[in-house]
Design a protein around this nucleic acid. Structure first.
Lengths: 346, 346
DNA sequence: TCGAACGGCGAGAGCGCTCTCACCTGCATC
DNA sequence: GATGCAGGTGAGAGCGCTCTCGCCGTTCGA
């Protein structure tokens, strides 16, 4: 095995001799088929033989070659997590929670999580990987409003799950939080602590989350007897939060409570308040949205609406794998309820 | 071959008819081998035939099945990025940069990035995936001091790269920043702006980064004529930063400049300073380390030592792929130089 | 003029697995 | 005693690709 290069390119000593089904079958004195049955947990195997085979497996240290299996099963046992490459999304703890949630479901099943940041060619890349059998399905997180990818995948009849309600009416499975209810939670809390001159800084209103959070907040405020609230528009970025707060203080100085549609915007808004000499929460109460780590690092820590991101991510994984198992699984949407996390800002 | 359900489980209409090498070969009127040569860019193909084959490929919409290829090439074209699951690491922008850097190298080569958060069984998982041919190599980011995985992989002669100098003397390829030089940068800046009562809050001193940053800082301060500096130990967490700052103010009230060995700790320390009525940078100048987003969201924004994380990550990917291509590539370490980013805190 | 050398191509043998199908027992049934 | 029917098992045909090897025709040196 050593003297005369039986495989010159790689020193034999290095290459741990690969053990195949064949090998295990020989050791166990059965056929390849039977070993395969044992490995895959098929029940119709004689108990005694099963034991013999299992012993042979651990004796040889056999591990199935996944490429070979994949070739015949047509499963990659890998899914992709596609994230927008903007820094404001990833780099957010939100992201960690997504990964953690997905991993929780996927890992015990031996399914790999392939990470892709969107780039100019991500769409084709994903479709290609799917067609090449490298990927079983795709989780699309925070896709842009006009991203053609979701529709593309649906048309190609490929397993796909979205992290939020799609902007257009594509028949696609998604997982979302009840944004409207989240807005309502914020309203109730602000009114409950005595705010009477309430405003809100919204996210991008052309996207469902921004739109729905505002709608929920507005409706709840009206229900609480305060139909007239000041609305300033942001776009979910930190900078837009700061700018919106400046505008708000200029246009509506007596404000005493603000619902800011994302923690990131709130993080931008708080220093502005400080600079204008308003103390939080005494002069102005602030409620954010997301319960990101930003909420914790803010000064003061943010009262905010929490989305159960990790659970939602786990659900996305579940929904995706369901589709992988049965491509004809009906489209479905799962909505999670948000919760208010009370800290110091309101 | 067609009439009588040759594969009942999947409706034929759904399944886009797969086109194989065989098919392309038939269309082009050549052998499978020749098509394979064209697909893989082997030069010894007649120009005319090459054109014919290429035409056949695009006519049929052929895409190679990667499982089949993988079966014979023994390459998965996938690498894993293993990250500690603690929130303080991921969820950091640092993490985004790692992913971006690795992706930049890996994506154009069609190599997948598989994400794994460390868990109780990550080690075995990774080794198994490697042995099963699902993974070509592993990038280990911020492994724990006593994680056996690096050594395990080195012994198994598997491609692996570390994100920092290993704590023990394992012969392993790693990419790191010149921590010592980083500490020196901080020292020079503090002294340069006139600080004369300087202190430092360190990271965990049992780990190379914490140790080296302190050593570099200390040596540089001594060289600048200030051998006596106050040292308070932290452990890289935000909380430890706050605690250390409290201790520092109690033990050494006249302090006028602090080098804090991570932005995260600085983020914890700044509110403490504010609460004690010390203004930054007027009363106390602060220099952090990492240039994380924390540095930007701090109030005031942090002067900090930047590691070129994205470039370092790209280098890790390059080093790993080099090992994958040639398992006998010599072990190597690549050290990047840090830079000082001057903002408002010092 | 002839053999050698070489560029270019196809046949075919795998890679390691799954899964169908035929076969073989043994046992109950007619 | 012939038949049916289980539960188990093995032979073998792929899955789609790469890559070695041998063949063929052309060109070149002697």
């Amino acid at each position: 095995m050593s003297c005369c290069g039986y495989k010159e390119s790689v020193p034999a000593s290095r290459e741990p001799k690969r053990v195949t089904l064949e090998e295990v079958a020989r050791v166990a004195g059965v056929s390849r088929a039977t070993v395969s049955r044992v490995v895959n947990g098929v029940s119709s195997v004689d108990q005694n033989i099963r034991v013999v085979v299992e012993r042979a497996i651990s004796a040889t240290g056999y591990l199935p070659n996944l490429a070979a299996r994949s070739l015949v099963t047509r499963r990659a046992d890998a899914i992709a997590l596609v994230l927008p490459s903007e820094n404001r999304i990833v780099g957010d703890p939100f992201f960690t929670q997504i990964v953690t949630g997905v991993t929780r479901i996927v890992r015990p099943l031996g399914v790999h999580l392939v990470l892709m940041m969107t780039g100019p060619d991500t769409g084709e890349q994903v479709v290609t990987d799917l067609r090449q059998g490298r990927l079983d399905g795709v989780i699309l997180v925070h896709t842009h409003t006009n991203d053609p990818l979701p529709e593309l995948l649906v048309k190609a009849h490929r397993p796909v799950v979205l992290s939020a309600r799609p902007s257009s009416a594509v028949p696609i499975t998604f997982v979302d939080v009840n944004q409207t209810a989240g807005g309502a939670l914020a309203a109730e809390h602000l009114v409950g602590r005595g705010c009477r001159r309430v405003a809100t800084i919204t996210g991008s209103l052309d996207r469902p989350p921004g739109h729905e959070r505002l709608a929920g907040f507005r409706a709840a405020m009206a229900g609480l007897g305060q139909p007239d609230i000041v609305v300033v528009q942001g776009d979910f970025t930190r900078e837009s939060g700061a700018a919106a707060m400046r505008r708000l203080l200029a246009e509506f100085p007596p404000v005493d409570g603000v619902f800011i549609a994302s923690d990131l915007m709130a993080e931008g808004a708080l220093p502005v308040l400080r600079r204008y000499g308003r103390s939080v929460p005494d002069d102005v109460a602030i409620v954010g949205f997301d319960d990101s780590t930003a909420a914790l690092t803010c000064d003061p820590p943010l009262t905010t609406v929490r989305q159960p991101v990790e659970d939602m991510a786990a659900e996305m994984a579940r929904q995706l794998l369901r589709q992988v198992d049965d491509p004809d699984t009906p489209v479905r949407s799962v909505i999670f309820e948000p919760a208010l996390v009370v800290r110091e800002s309101a």
